[in-house]
Design a protein around this nucleic acid. Sequence first.
DNA 1: TCTGGGGTCCTAGGACCC
DNA 2: TCTGGGGTCCTAGGACCC
Length: 415
Amino acid sequence: MKYVGLMDCNNFFVSCERLFRPDLQNKPTLVLSSNDGCVVARSQEIKDMGIPMGVPYFKVKDIIKDSKTAVFSSNFSLYRDLSARVYDSLSEQVPTVEQYSIDESFFYLNADSNTDVEREALSIKNKIERQTGIPVSIGVASNKTLAKLASKFAKKDKGVFVLDTEKLQKLALEVPLYDIWGIGINLNKSLQSNNIANVADYLALDVAVVRKLYGVVGERLWLELSGKLINKVCRKKTIKQSITHSRSFNKAIFTKSVIEDALSYHTRMAAEDLRSVNLVATGVKIFIMPSRHGDYVLQGLSANIIFDTPTDDTFAMLDNINKVLNGIYKASVPYKKAGITLFGLIDKSSLQNKLFNNTVDKNILLNTLDNLNKKFGKDFIKIGDRQKSKMWQTKADKLSPAYTTRWSDIPIVSA
DNA sequence: TCTGGGGTCCTAGGACCC
DNA sequence: TCTGGGGTCCTAGGACCC
């Protein structure tokens, strides 16, 4: 019998910060999104205070003022590094692992009729925690949808939960559909209006009706909720479909040259990512947008460029971008965010090298730049972005040290 | 005053063709 | 004056996720 497990790090960003700040154990701790905008990770103490996920920081500043809450800006190099450690630990223990997000992985757990699945999962959990110091929960069921659900119960329980058919039958009447992976605000509204409130209601529908009302997505969901394995766990690292780099500005920007500068910066960063995984892009989308909350919501625009040949060349990308920006930029709009998405990604080695072109020289140049930036910091050599003004740079006032990825920040232990 | 960033997948509808 | 229908492909935008 094949079981699907979901391993989920508890309050992941908070756990990462606490790993190097043991004094924060059991103290209210939270992590902010970039630009210190929203609360994106909360310790149990913060959750108990009723502070919801994703709330803007300025709205809760007053609430946490008296509680001596530790507040951090997002420290992604730290989180990525610890995420890799957790992944490695899990991979050592089970045959097939699919990393789903920075803090979650699906895996197969092989078992025969004699296996104590719960004990097996508990042993995996304990080993990960011992090896990495990051607390995790594990949900186990017959497919991903149910494993996700199981992991929710795992968190409320002892950190491990096996959702079998019997338990599911009991729970189906209690679990609201909004708690199911893949059901968001809109789908939920639509279900509500048809008086379908919980998993049991949904499963009581005929699958053909589900297909008609909620499309293939709804149908797949129905099949998985009824126990079938539709969405397989797959280890192979599929090639990314797109790479995005974008940031909000710390205040509204009207000036075109500043936006150009930001777009150049994002292009450089995204192209560097692209080269680091040996891919080339077919095209790039650039987008500029005002605040999501003001009067200009609909003034955001984007434009696509298709390259002559798929490329990973920062220079070739930059050549096009400013031309396209002219077509979408409006002087009257208070822009709050800009970014680019590289799309149509393909393996660089599968790209036929044209004879008599100069890509070899370019490759050497770009690789050298990448290596220098890797060694001396990401802004050591800039292409395109002048960064004369810091107008569009983001805020990260409460950043913790790069404990695991920068020599000067490595903690020193003294006895 | 202050509201993240990076993804995937699906679908409706336009463009185009015969 | 009168101007089809059906198929495919593509893309922008929606929905959802962490």
